[in-house]
Every structure is written in structure tokens, then in C-alpha cells.
Design a protein around this nucleic acid. Structure first.
Length: 425
DNA sequence: TCTGGGGTCCTAGGACCC
DNA sequence: TCTGGGGTCCTAGGACCC
């Protein structure tokens, strides 16, 4: 039995994950600056260490750094989530060989409870795990070890910043020195706004935060900030979540590659998002009770006329049927659409999700429901076996409005037979 | 010219009720 | 002039995460 005194968490985090994935099948990218772009090749969402050192910032629009790219021969890639998702799965599989208690926290991070390793040298075990992940997947990772998730995160940050740690750091018996080395804004749970506020009241490092009275933190910020500070003191507030809670909302949206000015294009985009959202619902065996539709013009261009529209409707009975959601979404959107605007983004948001069977309403005939269900099964089966979008509703259209601009995507090496890496003799 | 796409939780304040 | 008080529910907005 492991008591609270001896409990330990590790956080394993892939280094520059997307950039590292790009390098696996293209070793010549090693030691070169690499940046990966968001959908539509809009802004930078990942950078290799070399690109960070040059000064590329997270979230920066790529058109603003064309000069920097040219001057430094930076490799620019569109995002390739098929590849990243598959590499992530391989990394997580490897991690699970070292401990059964793993919470996959994001595509490139996992918390690990080290209960099973009590009595052994945690650091040594984690170094073994790190070596295995690197050897079997090609992805370099960093690992932090501490009594709470927040401390494990902090140790991980320290390991990344401090090359002498060689990728693994553990919170020492007396953590003061390490806490002083981490800025308040680099603590997990303390973002831009709060770190500004903390600095204004003289709190600059994790060490300073630990000195603060918890009640004062809660009063000045909120209960989450207080819990974060308590976790830094070694008190557990955030537990390992191995079986994720059922999701509460589901959003499908995207920016347009080119501005949209016609109802035809806008309606096709909304129908496509509705389709993707409904598929995801069925995939997770959920139904939605509330549907929200939105679209708006550019948030950045203040010269052109601006318009932001959104509307919500209750779905009675709750549903995950594609054509019902398309119909309701278009019904909501059409009266809001206005001629003369250049729309940049649209989306479909589903809320109040619940498990399983939709309730039957008074006006809902059982035959109709059965038919819908059968139709969705056929649709999903066809699209699963023959490729997404093989069979779709006419409302989603045949124009190219939903096509992403992805000029520099690498091949999907591990998930498409026709894109397998080739070895030439 | 060109600025991602998802999620969660908390709080304040208004509506409404008795 | 003075204009109750307390409770719940809901929503929008703001903070955070990746």
C-alpha cells in the first residue's frame, strides 16, 4: 500500500513533439531549425529547439516571419496530425510498459503514478524509460518527478531548461533551490494574466508563491490558483485521471483558407462541421441536447466590415443523427447570414451531451428513429471502410470551400500504405 | 494578401422566486 | 425621505490547459 507520504508522480513530455515527428523519417532535418504550422498554414504551432533559439514565437503568424525563415534556412512544415497522432500512440504504449497507471494528458504528455516502483530508484527507472522511448520511437522525451502532478510538471520544466539533468529531474528533499529557479509564469496552471498579477504583488518565482498564504491566493485569484500553490507544497489536489470523464461539449470549427462571401459556401462549411460533429458524437455513443452555430469575419482586420453571428437551439429529443443536426444548424444560420461580409470562420458547437439512447419525445415516431439509426450505421460503416467522406449529404457540397491550405505537409508515413517511407538501394 | 482548433473550470451578475 | 432579504439557477465571459 502506498500512502500519501511516499506517492510519486512523473510527467513525461515529448521534446518539441511535432518538430521531432517531422525528423523521424527525415533525419537530414536533425539540428536544423524546423517550424510546424497550424491548419491553413496560418501560424506557428511547434518549433524545434533551433527554431526557438532563433526567436520564433509560439502562435506567431508565419507571414510575419518570412525574412527570419529565409535568413536562417528554416524548414517549414504544414501540420500532419495523422503522423503525430500515430507517433503519440507509440510513445504512450512504450510508457505503459513501465507503469500501468498512466494518464495520457495530451498528445505529447503523460502523467505516470510510480506506485509500482516503490523501493526502486525512480530516477534510474525513468532514465530507462526515456532511453526505451527514444530507441523504439525516435522521440526524445523529458521527465520530471515529484510528489504531486504540479511538482512533476515543475521538475519536468527544470529538466528541459537544465542540460546537465540529461532529461530527467526529481524534486529534491529540499526543493527551495529548484523552486527559486522557476518563474511564476512557468508553473502549470499560472498563465499570462495571472503571472502579471503575481509579479505586481512581488511574487516572481515558484518559491515566492509557496510562501504566500493560501487563503490570500484564493481571495486574490481563485480556488484553482490556491490548489496549484498547495500542490507546490506537496499536498495532492489533482489526482491521476486514467479513465477520462465523459466530455461535456464538442466543437467542430475551422478558419476558411479564403474568405467566404456566399450562402452556398457558408452553408456547405456549416454542414461539414455538423457532419464531423455528429460522427464524433456517434463514435463516443453520445447525444447532444443543445446546438450552437456561429460564424464571423476576421478578428484581425479592422478595415473591412465586421460581423459575428451565433445562435443556439435545443435539440428535442437529444440526437446524434447527421441530417437532423445539419438541418437544424442551417436553419439557425440562414437568417443570420448577411451579404457583403467576408467570413473567415464558422463552427458547430454541441452542448449538454449525454450517454447513449436519445429520449423519445411525444412527436417522435419509433419507426423514424429506427430508420435514422440504421441509416447512420450504414453511413459510418461505409466511411470507416472506404475513407472519410466517401458517402456524405449533399448539403456539405462539392465545392472546395472546406479544403485546407497545406502546401508543405510531409507524407503520412505510418498511417497510409501509399505514403510509406521508401528505402532506395 | 496571409493570424489554429480544440477543451475545462470558476466567478460575477442578472433573472426569478418566495 | 424612506423602498427587504435571501436563495437558486442560468449565462457570459474570462482564466487556464494542450
Amino acid at each position: 500500500m502506498v500512502d500519501a507520504q511516499t506517492r510519486m508522480y512523473a510527467l513525461a513530455d515529448c521534446n518539441n513533439f511535432y518538430a521531432s515527428c517531422e525528423r523521424i523519417f527525415e533525419p537530414h532535418l536533425a539540428r536544423k531549425p524546423v517550424v510546424v504550422l497550424s491548419n491553413n498554414d496560418g501560424c506557428i504551432i511547434a518549433r524545434s529547439q533551433e527554431a526557438k533559439d532563433i526567436g520564433f514565437k509560439m502562435g506567431e503568424p508565419i507571414f510575419k516571419c518570412r525574412d527570419l525563415v529565409k535568413q536562417n534556412n528554416v524548414i517549414v512544415r504544414s501540420s500532419n496530425f495523422s503522423l503525430y497522432g500515430d507517433m503519440s500512440r507509440r510513445v504512450m504504449q512504450t510508457i505503459r510498459l513501465f507503469s500501468p497507471d498512466v494518464e495520457v494528458y495530451s498528445i505529447d504528455e503523460a502523467f505516470i503514478k510510480l506506485d509500482g516502483l516503490v523501493g526502486r530508484d525512480f530516477e534510474q527507472e525513468m532514465r530507462r524509460m526515456r532511453a526505451a522511448v527514444l530507441q523504439w520511437t525516435g522521440i526524445p522525451i523529458s521527465i520530471g518527478i515529484g510528489k504531486t502532478k504540479t511538482l512533476a510538471k515543475l521538475a519536468n520544466h527544470y529538466a528541459k531548461k537544465t542540460p546537465e539533468m540529461e532529461g530527467v529531474a526529481k524534486i529534491p528533499q529540499n526543493p527551495d533551490e529548484m523552486l527559486r529557479a522557476v518563474e511564476v509564469g512557468d508553473i502549470w496552471g499560472i498563465g499570462r494574466q495571472w503571472s502579471k498579477k503575481f509579479r505586481n504583488i512581488g511574487v516572481h518565482t515558484a518559491f515566492d508563491l509557496v510562501q504566500m498564504e493560501p487563503a490570500v491566493i484564493q481571495q486574490t485569484f481563485n480556488i484553482v490558483a490556491m490548489k496549484t500553490a498547495m500542490e507546490l507544497r506537496g499536498c495532492t489536489y489533482f489526482r491521476l485521471e486514467q479513465s477520462p470523464e465523459q466530455r461535456k461539449t464538442l466543437l467542430r470549427s475551422r478558419s476558411f483558407a479564403k474568405p467566404v462571401t456566399t450562402w452556398q459556401e457558408l452553408s456547405e462549411a456549416i454542414a461539414s462541421h455538423a457532419t464531423r460533429a455528429a460522427e464524433k458524437l456517434r463514435n463516443e455513443e453520445l447525444v447532444a441536447s443543445v446546438l450552437k452555430v456561429f460564424f464571423h469575419t476576421s478578428l484581425f482586420n479592422h478595415q473591412k466590415p465586421r460581423h459575428s453571428a451565433h445562435a443556439t437551439i435545443e435539440l428535442i429529443p437529444p440526437t446524434n443523427t447527421t441530417h437532423t443536426i445539419i438541418k437544424e444548424a442551417l436553419h439557425l444560420a440562414e437568417p443570420m447570414w448577411k451579404v457583403g461580409f467576408e467570413y473567415k470562420r464558422a463552427g458547430v458547437y454541441l452542448l449538454e451531451l449525454s450517454k447513449g439512447q436519445a429520449q423519445t419525445s411525444l412527436f417522435d415516431s419509433p419507426e423514424r428513429k429506427k430508420l435514422d439509426k440504421q441509416m447512420m450505421s450504414v453511413l459510418d460503416a461505409v466511411n470507416t471502410s472506404m475513407g472519410a467522406g466517401t458517402m456524405h449529404f449533399a448539403a456539405t457540397g462539392f465545392t472546395k470551400v472546406m479544403q485546407m491550405r497545406q502546401l508543405q505537409r510531409s507524407p503520412r508515413y505510418t498511417t497510409r500504405w501509399d505514403e510509406l517511407p521508401q528505402v532506395r538501394a
